[in-house]
Amino acid sequence: MADATTFQPCVIPVLRSFDAQRAAEFYQGFLGFVQDWTHRFGDDFPLYEQLSLRSAAGLACVLHVSEHHGDACPGSTVRIAWPQLEAFQQSLLAKNYRYAKPGLERMPWGMLEMRIADPFGNQLVFFEELPDAPGSAGG
């Protein structure tokens, strides 16, 4: 199994952004993503960037965020498996981010979920399988 330094995701979602500063405030400042790299074709061109978020357990999430028209559709939803979701949610609430106070919801399909909308209408759904879920190792 790959460790966090060699993690290669099989799918990297592209999410639409309309403002690099607001995207940085949300993804990096609030959620804790790290900017891995950026690309612009020149000064005053749209930004395309890769962001990653690593859990304490070494799990990584990689997203591409693009200001380019046509790269992605605003209002998309991305589901992100995340261990120790309640601790992550509490760390986000402690930041007292003005535009999001995410809650947790137990879903009837055996998942704990936290839904957060970014400033551009995209939905990020962080989820963790509950140990007592039907079909899980513990259920």
Rank of each mutant, 00 (worst) to 15 (best):
A2L: 08
D3E: 13
T5M: 10
F7D: 05
Q8K: 11
Q8H: 05
Q8L: 06
P9M: 10
I12K: 01
I12C: 11
P13W: 00
P13Q: 03
P13R: 01
V14P: 00
R16W: 15
R16H: 15
D19M: 06
A20G: 11
Q21G: 06
A23G: 05
E25I: 01
Y27K: 11
G29L: 06
G29V: 07
V34R: 11
Q35G: 03
D36V: 15
H39D: 07
R40M: 12
F41S: 08
G42P: 01
Y48S: 09
E49Q: 15
Q50T: 12
Q50R: 12
Q50Y: 11
L51R: 00
L53P: 05
S55Q: 09
A56Y: 03
G58A: 00
L59P: 03
L59W: 12
A60W: 01
V62Q: 04
L63N: 09
H64R: 07
H64T: 09
V65P: 04
H69A: 15
H69Q: 14
G70T: 12
C73P: 09
C73K: 15
P74C: 14
G75E: 14
T77R: 12
T77D: 10
V78I: 09
R79V: 09
R79M: 11
I80E: 14
W82R: 05
P83S: 13
P83Y: 10
F88V: 00
F88L: 00
F88E: 00
Q89L: 04
Q90C: 02
S91K: 00
L92A: 08
N96M: 11
N96R: 13
R98M: 09
A100I: 06
A100L: 05
A100K: 02
P102S: 08
L104G: 09
E105S: 09
M111A: 13
M114H: 06
M114S: 11
I116A: 08
I116F: 07
I116R: 01
A117P: 04
F120K: 00
F120Q: 02
F120G: 01
F127T: 06
E128C: 07
E128N: 10
L130P: 01
P131S: 13
D132I: 09
A133I: 14
G138P: 04
G139K: 05
